[in-house]
Amino acid sequence: MKFKLKIWRQDSAKSKGGMKRYEIDQVSENTSFLEMLDILNEQLVNSGEEPVAFDSDCREGICGTCSLTINGEAHGPSHPAAACQLYMRQFKDGETITVEPFRVRSFPIVKDLVIDRSALDRIVQAGGFVSARTGSAPEANSTPIPKHNADLAMEAAACIGCGACAAACPNASAMLFTSAKISHLAFLPQGQAERSRRVLGMVRQMDVEGFGNCTNTYECEAVCPAEISASFIAKMNREYAVASLRERMGE
């Protein structure tokens, strides 16, 4: 297969970037999208041009490292999937493919297609955990959890932290990411003690980081590789409303 590529090149965080055109030929349809970029890079190296910087690690859709906007969609046209799970057979021969980074102010560009997502780490640090001192845990089966709740918690916990939700959101909001962690822990008895503290801390940190606001377009859940449901955002809104009311009441 043959493709025309338009790829965002940017030297560093401070420099100005722009789209650059490339062409690539003789790509097998079983090549993954990232492997196609590997091939392009090998060609660039051979011709003395610096390869396109892009992030990836596990290449099986679980580590959440890859962060490409392909043809205007976070992680490309095949949902639900991370960019690393995208195969060239999903494109038309001869197609022009646009590749850009995730564009969110809170994810500054490091180089080309590589971004800095430490904002997401800071949101978790603001309360996305259960304070359980190592070694102090009670016997695992001492707290039964209804299967239904455990399953719901797992659905929320499946988030891979890639940030596609914010990248796809017209407002660059990270509500889906944040709500997934809040919901995961709110569904479980272990998460109850810090429930209010957690939602207040994480939501406020999200605002501090400069993410946008949710206007319920549900673009986030449409591109989410882990199929996190936007209903968790509703849950977070509920949790937040209750927690902030309680806080105001001095409880």
Partner: peptide, 20 residues
């Protein structure tokens, strides 16, 4: 305005999947 600030550089190409 906040939302606009949250994405200072806009996409060269932006498609939507689900947003009406």
């Amino acid at each position: 305005i906040e939302n606009r600030r949250a994405r200072p550089t806009s996409y060269r190409r932006k498609d939507t999947v689900k947003a009406t």
